[in-house]
Design a protein around this nucleic acid. Structure first.
Lengths: 357, 357
DNA sequence: CTCACGAGGTACATCGATTAACCAATCGTT
DNA sequence: AACGATTGGTTAATCGATGTACCTCGTGAG
């Protein structure tokens, strides 16, 4: 496709390209950056020479000169227990990369285990000038990151519901509660009255938003939650919460989970307890991961379009970095996807478990 | 934790640190790189000054000077249908990052959709000097990447069974067939005689290895595979293959899948067809993803320790990049993890499906 | 004929960190 | 006391690309 011979590893420099094209290095630079004034003929000649030699501008050198690295950071906080984060972040990364790749940007991925470690990492990335910006995942209550990144002078976007007054722009679907509300409405229409919610870590903003939406939706129907149990998104918590709920005297007939992975654990736990889904208990997830549709029964869930949101976040961040970008927002809102894990409430209210297999 | 005031975004340079410590910039550099000869007192003074100012060496500048970026590339090929790749790569990335982070290395992640795109990307990464090396995933038959990377002068490691004579080092568990052999032995011990294999894309090396191991293990027991169906790892193929197998007149009593994600699809498909797992049909996966143990029944699978292999690959690559590394290999081999998705073969051979649910 | 001007390029300083070569004290030795 | 060795630093060149300031033609107007 390119490149002739030459010792492996000997990358050509701009000088050699200039020499090959019979021009100065400045001309080569101008040809690549569409600056200065070059005749079309010289431009061609330079580009041809570069192609011939397999030359591209050295990224560190350009970064040094321009103070722009053309790479962005994504820091994923991965607490000890990985449950649920992973497929979610895969989707997110897919969305982000889809915008970066065509513009020649790179994504620098880091995994951290705690907040302090995450802050220290941003400090280092900024101090070392390794990235032009960062995508901040999972808005937290009293989130220290926007202020930190602002102090560091590092452009950033925060994944979360849009909110005019933020230090850094927020990107996400509007009306984040709508999906949960829809889910509750769906369950109520199926006759469920005892509905429980298995929630996420309290410090995450969406935990509060979804929980509130859940309670609100029930209240509007004149009902109260059967229970709202917080978890850390771990398998242990998901299973524990589910077992606790299903062991109750008058157990809930429907369980709503704060993400798909926990919902999958929940289905497994219910089945292990001898209950059939959705006959004895209905289950709703949140995320709409591919995984949910592989199972039997297929998971009813709230689609929050992680991939599209990731793409929008990337575009917004690129715009902040001075890149020309057409459209920075996302429209749409979370929407319930009804599949097979929800069904009519059991006749007697399902008070006593029908032991199966 | 650090940094005093100063306009946001104004990163200090080595000069200011030198001035603050009352030394030359050379001294500062030496203090940070443990080179040259500095008195312990001066070293301290410099380090304190740097901490005070919140300075770290500018990465692009250092990269330009040293021709080393301290970042490595991971290119993930993600064909149109994502099935199965994602959690697997999450594990891999976790393993890799665990080695990079403590050494101050970054991981540049790229997603591509095809071979040619992947090659072009390596060309560009090398030409731009963006990374010091690359981790090549999923050894393929007649893999063009090692030669390419060698020509580009970019250090690399290939994930696959170790093999003395490779252009680039290979990192992986030895005796890759052992896990499948163990799985087959397990199934035979349970009385299964009609065992089918749902395989991966033909161009991947491990597809051949595992398939061969599967056939070999059966042959040694005097049996032949019920069937071996190739797939592209997509959900569509996984479901299609499973349906085809289960629709057979004398259907197989056990299904072995080339990865966990397909096995999950397989379980779902079997259940949807009214069969119980493992009562009517046993299922074995490959990978040992966390997901497998959330389900009911929990997935019997082959643990290939992706995370540990990823870590070993990272160490090997770092060593190639001149980093001091203690241990570059992985020991251990793929091992069967028996859980709940496998059980005794159905009495009558399970010729006629016992419709449930 | 001269001069202004624009088109088309070039020379050189610059980004920030690293390092080889060099220099100034200081010390121990005979 | 004179000298080599050692300690503890400094000076200046360098990595590769970029962009500002400048230069050199050729042309058309006056």
């Amino acid at each position: 496709m390119s490149v002739s011979t030459g010792r492996p590893g000997r990358r050509p420099t701009i000088k050699e390209v200039a020499a090959a094209a019979g021009v100065s290095t400045a001309a080569v630079s101008q040809a690549f950056n569409h600056k200065g004034r070059l005749s079309e003929a010289t431009r061609r000649r330079i580009l041809d020479a570069a192609l011939e030699l397999g030359w591209s501008p050295n990224a560190p050198a350009a970064a040094l000169r321009n103070a722009r690295t053309r790479s962005l950071a994504l820091v994923v906080r991965r607490p000890t227990d990985v449950l649920g984060s992973d497929p979610h972040f895969s989707e997110l990364i897919t969305g982000i990369e889809g915008e970066l790749a065509p513009r020649g940007y790179g994504l620098l991925l880091h995994l951290v285990s705690g907040h302090r470690e995450e802050y220290a990492l941003y400090e280092r990335l900024a101090a070392e000038g390794r990235v032009d910006g960062a995508v901040l995942t999972d808005a937290r209550d009293a989130d220290a990151r926007p202020a930190l990144l602002a102090r560091l002078g590092l452009p950033a976007v925060l994944l979360g519901a849009p909110d005019g007054t933020a230090v850094v722009p927020r990107v996400g679907l509007r009306d984040q509660g709508a999906g949960i509300a829809e889910a509750v409405a769906h369950l109520l229409a199926l006759g469920h009255r005892r509905v429980a919610y298995v929630s996420g870590p309290p410090e995450l903003e969406h935990t509060r938003v979804r929980r509130t939406a859940f309670e609100q939706a029930l209240r509007e129907a004149g009902l109260r939650p059967f229970a709202v149990l917080p978890t850390d998104f771990s398998e242990r918590h998901a299973v524990g919460a589910t077992e606790a709920l299903l062991a109750a005297a008058e157990r809930p007939t429907a369980l709503v989970y704060a993400n798909d992975s926990m919902a999958v654990c929940g289905i497994g736990t219910a089945q292990r307890a001898g209950l059939a889904v959705p006959r004895d208990v209905s289950v709703v997830g949140y995320d709409n991961l591919p995984l949910g549709s592989w199972l039997h029964p297929r998971l009813t869930t709230v689609d929050q379009q992680v991939q599209r949101v990731g793409a929008a976040a990337a575009r917004t961040l690129l715009a902040l970095c001075g890149e020309p970008v057409e459209e920075t927002g996302v429209d749409g809102r979370p929407r319930l996807v009804v599949r097979e894990s929800t069904g009519p409430a059991p006749p007697g209210g399902g008070a006593t478990g029908a032991a199966a297999g």
